[in-house]
Design a binder for these strands. Structure first.
Lengths: 334, 334
DNA sequence: CCGACTCATGGTATCGATACCATTCTTGCG
DNA sequence: CGCAAGAATGGTATCGATACCATGAGTCGG
């Protein structure tokens, strides 16, 4: 193989010093005299040298890489979490290695395995349901693992999120208190979307004594959030014609439901209240006047990054379950 | 340092073979007899072994990592591009290392340098404006570099995108042909957002002989897309009261403008047409009836992944500038 | 003036894998 | 039966950095 990259040895020769001195000049400049520091800097600039951090990771046993596994990119809220993570980790000199599971535990298991192959210093998971073999792999490695967007009772290592159950419950309570009598819940039906399941439970808890009206639509490859919302509302009004409120599991579904209500000339909020979940500014929830649960995805990402940096630098963590809360934003749709 | 990870040597000992045989059993199973293959598999399972791919990268000089640098996560369309990339690369056994520049060339330069430190097999950039030192670093390394979302005349290596200029021009033409006389253009004012600049140029080209009405709002830390849209429309109607159409540089701005129009009781599309750019289903442009330019961000990501896989496996590329096109979706707002 | 100490620097082993070459053992064919 | 070809396996050097220990020069206090 022909020589492709400039190495530390090349720089050392050009600067007339030992390569270990080059290493120090780059990592811990304080330990090197000003004169050599400058010689090294000149050689680096002249040769266009970029240190090979993977080799450094091998010998120092610290990769400065964090693996992140998210369920999906389709919910735009996750994008802001990734952004927060990426920003926060960059400040600590760490990089983000990314993968998506599409809510498949099998995919998650494979991704965890391939990401571990890169020897990350920590892992971030947006899910708290894991296969036994995944858990085994994670605990065996002894890595800091931060679970996001949920608050499991016993996190593997730490968790940053909020109670999906409490949030859905709060939303349903709000509808009950504003006089709604026949409240339905609309969701996509992914077996391993625990966040959606917790929200459905929160909804049901707020309606003791009532028969819950839960519609779960099977996922289709060609459908996007709003498609499920439209189709779902149609199906709900057919099954339970007296429904006067629909709690949607996400803003995307609520947006679709909103459109369908328009097509059916159902007055919102007069005849029907519609609520969402997420509230990312860029997504038109506010423009449409959608009542929704606001989650600060960016803050979750930043907090997770801070936790990760603390854990990898050996600091003790004050807390393992960090509740970032949620807030109910009431707008015109309820 | 205490021993943390199981190594290939441990597996070899447990299986009673040489470690090179373990390597072959995992990478090229065909070169190993069925009996040893099973012994190795058993040892791997028993010890919970995960191969260290960074060490492998060091000796094979192929990291199977692709670095991606995006301008921002705030435009949800980028999220779908990242999704396409991540999916496509995963199929080729490659991983995605991510960073964001926030439209700062300085940040881009730093990110390119730190990402190169991880010795990626390729780089993906969502921008085609680069600092001279960044270009030098990139060409010196001889890496495949794929630029996304634009179509520069001379890509560093390859580009997958569409003509922002042609798209904005098509939108403006549409407005002219539907009888609009006083068309304004609304954008945020980021010096290095070349996509926005190209769109402004396309807009101006479609109005020969007219004085273009371009409003650029300075970016603020606390503002999101819709905020600029609202504020921008207010300012436009004040500066040019007879404006009867606004071409917004993104859907997020259009959504904000839409709200502001409602607050001012400006009839859309009667008195004022509003158009956007992007059209991600989850964002609700369709629900609001927004006329917009549809870009298939996911397809751009997939295509870029395919190109990257081809380039890293040494295949010749049939094309270096791939135009993924755009389509104008007319809805109620124009 | 000398021992103890700090500061700057270098040498060598090591991290965990793969590349390359060598070796052994089969197998087929003249 | 003998030899060449090929399959399976192993040994050793190597990738490019850092860790650890050693060394030599200069400084300070007794």
């Amino acid at each position: 193989m022909q020589k492709k990259w400039v190495t530390m040895g090349d720089v050392a020769r050009a600067a007339g010093v030992g390569k270990i001195t080059v290493s120090r000049a780059l990592s811990t400049p304080a330990k090197v005299s000003a004169a050599t520091r400058e010689k090294v800097a000149a050689a680096v600039a002249e040769l266009g040298y970029v240190r090979d951090d993977t080799a450094g990771a091998l010998s120092s046993q610290r990769s400065r890489v964090v693996g992140a596994i998210v369920s999906t990119f389709d919910q735009p809220t996750f994008a802001s979490t990734i952004r927060g993570l990426s920003e926060g980790l960059a400040q600590g000199g760490m990089h983000l290695l990314l993968g998506t599971t599409q809510y498949e535990p099998q995919t998650e298991a494979e991704l965890v395995a391939t990401l571990m192959g890169r020897r990350p210093d920590a892992l971030i998971l947006t899910s708290s349901e894991h296969r036994p073999e995944t858990r085994a792999l994670l605990t065996r490695a002894g890595l800091p693992v931060v679970e996001l967007w949920e608050l499991p009772d016993a996190p593997i290592f730490a968790a940053v999120g909020f109670s999906n159950r409490a949030a859905a419950r709060a939303m349903t309570d709000h509808l009950v208190h504003t006089g709604r009598r026949a409240i339905a819940f609309l969701s996509t039906d992914r077996a391993h979307d625990t966040r959606a399941h917790m929200r459905a439970e929160g909804y049901a808890e707020a309606l003791p004594g009532h028969a819950p009206r839960i519609l779960r639509l099977p996922p289709r490859a060609d459908a996007t959030g709003p498609d499920y919302g439209s189709q779902g509302l149609a199906q709900i009004m057919e099954t339970w014609p007296d429904t006067d409120a629909v709690v949607c599991v996400s803003d995307a579904l609520a947006i679709g439901a909103f459109c369908e209500a328009g097509r059916r000339s159902l007055d919102v909020p007069g005849k029907l209240a519609i609520t969402g979940f997420g509230d990312v500014p860029e997504v038109g929830a506010s423009a449409l006047g959608l009542t929704t649960i606001r989650i600060d995805g960016h803050a979750i990402g930043r907090k997770a990054a801070a936790l990760t940096l603390a854990a990898t630098s050996g600091q003790p963590l004050p807390e393992r379950r960090i509740d970032m809360g949620f807030s109910l934003t009431r707008r015109a749709s309820s």
